[in-house]
Amino acid sequence: MAQSRNRNHGFTLVELLVVIAIIGVLVGLLLPAVQAAREAARRMSCSNNFKQIGLAVHNYHSAYKAMPTHGSGTDDGSDSLFNSYWYQQSDAYNCKMLSVFVGLTPFFEQQGLWDQISNPMDYDSDGVIDFPSMGPSNEEVNYAPWSTEIPMLRCPSDPGVGLPALGRTNYAVSLGDAGFELQFGNLSVWLHPEAEQSAQSNASHRGAFVLHRQLKFRDVIDGLSNTICMGEILTDLGDNDVRTMPLNSSGGANPIENPSHCRELGFIDPERPGFWGPAAPARAADTNTRGARWASAWNPFTAFNTILPPNREFCTSTNWANAEVFPAASRHQGGVHILLCDGSVQFVTDSIEAGNSNNPVVRRAADGGTANYLPGNPSPYGLWGALGTRAGREVIDQAL
């Protein structure tokens, strides 16, 4: 009886190529799902950060019977406010330009950082105090707290890291639905309490936060659940993103009269509508971009307004500091997170009803205003604008 011989069969080249092709197709099909799952996880982490910040605001209010001040700190003690406020730089004081996040550090698990800030610092260990308690002005790179990256203040979907920014933040306070003299905040009221400038300044301060002024929950007449406390912003990647870098003042924008003017000037790249094109005027300094300094109360760094809907362009008429129109923005698909004053977090889409984006910004008639945007009127920027005002008495009848 003949014995059959065992023969070892291997894969042919064709069979191997077929298997590899099938694996490639499966990877191609699964990769978008994996990426979507990762982004969903990052978005949830971002929402959790915001919830912790909201809890910190409420704990702060419970402790001090008021919300933290946006634009607090130390000055030179002189009688002239402009000597120590606003645009000055100093190692001896911080010009009262600390953001709300500085005061919140002990309330979102950053007690160690607060201890550094609230005590004098000898950063070079030579036995001489280099910086006073509460620190210098915010551009001082040798002052470690100002360049510290706080995980609670960063959205995992934003890849921005390092210089030229200092400690970055993806969260910002809401200054409401106006864009006139917001760089002065309550400073105008202090300097000229009897003047028209004071009245003009007050008229535009319609949000949950006002620069240099401490507000309480009771000031939010519209209701804590109907008023935005904070929102997401992006940090700049040096890529001419319209949401993180404004046009240079030579661009001729006038967002006071038309918030959409930067879009209509024709400087946006038609092939990449999220970026300024090659014809756009020169960029401002890279350090003056969105979210570049968590500890600074400057509007581009830690504030936004509800004039243009989320993820629209950052637009200013004179320089980056004035920043009349600076919307919320994020790297999440289709919208941004907002923190309401009651501590809840909502995801708002870019398509939220936002009224007339060409309507002039809210300000007093003495500065050229007309009836369609006088203070006291409902927000001209729809549901989005109404959510930004703390005392507009608008009725919020739509689900977010």
Rank of each mutant, 00 (worst) to 15 (best):
R154D: 05
P136S: 06
P193R: 08
T389H: 06
F304T: 03
L104T: 02
F101C: 04
R283Q: 11
Q110I: 02
C341M: 14
P378T: 10
G343K: 00
P380M: 09
Q35K: 15
W298Q: 07
R38L: 14
L187W: 09
V345Y: 08
M230R: 01
N202M: 12
I221L: 07
L153N: 00
G335Y: 10
P32I: 08
V348N: 00
C46D: 12
A280M: 07
Y93R: 02
K216A: 09
A195N: 13
P375F: 02
S296W: 09
W294I: 09
A66V: 08
S357I: 14
I221T: 15
F50V: 01
M1I: 09
H192A: 11
S201I: 03
Q3S: 09
L340D: 00
P193N: 11
R206I: 04
T316Y: 08
V141P: 00
Q110A: 07
V141D: 01
L374Y: 09
L16V: 08
T244I: 01
E181H: 08
R38H: 10
G176K: 03
P246L: 10
V173Y: 01
D342G: 05
G162M: 10
T244S: 12
P159D: 07
E181F: 13
A21T: 14
A66D: 00
G251W: 03
L13Q: 08
G355C: 13
N311R: 02
A399I: 10
Y87V: 08
A165R: 02
G343N: 00
L26A: 15
Y171K: 02
P360L: 02
